[in-house]
Simulated scan of single mutants.
Amino acid sequence: MTPHNPSRPSRPSGSSRPSGSSRPSGSSRLTRAALAAGAGVLVLSACGSDDGAGDDGRDAVTLQLNWYPYGEHAAFYYGVEEGIFEDHGISLSIEAGQGSARVVQAVGQRDFDFGWADTPALLANVDQGVDVRSVGVFLQSTPSAVQFFSETGITEPEDLKGRTIAVSAGDAVTLTFPLYLDAVGLSEDDVVQQNLDSAGKNAAMMVGRVDGLIGFAHDQGPKLADESGKEVSYLRYTDAGLNFFSNGLLAHSSTIADDPDLVERMVAATSEAFLAAQDAPEDAVAAMAGKDPQMPGENVLLQQWQETIPLLTTENTEGQAPGTTDEDDWRSTIEVLAEAGLINEAKPTDAYFDGSFTPEGR
């Protein structure tokens, strides 16, 4: 893709913008294989590497999401609607995904220019030789949590003893569950873990076959509450002092090397879009209307986005532009994931992250 530096067009009148100890080795092998799976899977759209400048002079750019659109993704749709990506010389096409591991693989194959994926999946795939790097993490506090209906009577970690919790073998939230249990003074033997896929977990909790599930609180929780009409409660990993990075932008190493200007503009536009969506949450969610038939209703999308906002920073990045990361947080993430067995060893940060594109301050 040819580097492109368009002058930024003025915004249309009437438009507004806010100011600027290790796990067992067998488990480790299973973990890395699961998170790196997907190389041979058909992606939803393969249209990235041969896109060039469009007729309007902007770069045609493809982005694959980690899943079908949900509230966390509102900022991207809002950024397109508000012209934020256009202002940065980008004509953005957003495609649904089918899991973070597949997104990382698709970007590694140059099927998409950029991907939006969970940091543990990124690190596991880089460990397996996929030539991608993170260029900015936006969800910097993990949404990982034990989720359950409030009527179960679970109110604190101790109440998990003897309970059946749905998990999904190989995903990051399940593989770090033993670390959570240890942090709250429990052992793996204290909890019955039932292995199910994502949809199976939700269904099992809905009909009472399990007492709760492991997952992302900002995504599954609002959907479960809406579908069941029941209140959902959480035991969050972060409340036990366990944190690691979640979703962010990634690109192929060749894109970073050959077109750093494009990467810089994409990171800047994404940061600006996330900031704008925080200031106008209802408008941001409204921008998603009609974009995908598998999206939940607007009320669920709004709750999902509102639950996303507190995840965008850590104590080290509070008050900084969305997507700005701190080296101490990167080291903590890498070390936690190495301890959980998701990666072979705690390599230097630059093995996974290119910090050349830090967004400008607010």
Rank of each mutant, 00 (worst) to 15 (best):
T2W: 00
P3C: 03
R23T: 08
G26V: 03
L30A: 13
L35D: 04
D51Q: 14
G54M: 04
L65W: 07
Y68C: 05
A75V: 07
Y77F: 15
E82I: 00
F85E: 05
E86Y: 03
H88P: 01
G89S: 10
I90G: 12
S100R: 06
A101N: 15
V107K: 05
F114G: 11
L122C: 07
N125G: 12
D131L: 09
D131I: 02
R133I: 02
E151R: 14
I154Y: 08
G162I: 04
I165S: 03
V167Y: 02
L175R: 13
F177H: 11
P178W: 11
A183P: 15
L186Y: 07
V192T: 14
Q194Y: 06
D197T: 02
M206K: 12
V207I: 09
G215N: 05
A225C: 05
K230S: 12
Y234E: 14
D239Q: 10
F245L: 15
A251I: 08
R265S: 14
F274E: 02
A276P: 06
Q278Y: 00
A284W: 00
A287L: 01
G290E: 00
G297P: 01
N299M: 00
L301Q: 09
T308K: 03
L311V: 01
T314Q: 06
E315V: 07
E318N: 08
G319T: 08
G319F: 02
D326Y: 03
W330K: 04
T333H: 12
E335F: 00
A338P: 02
L342E: 09
A346P: 07
S356D: 12
E360D: 14
R362W: 13
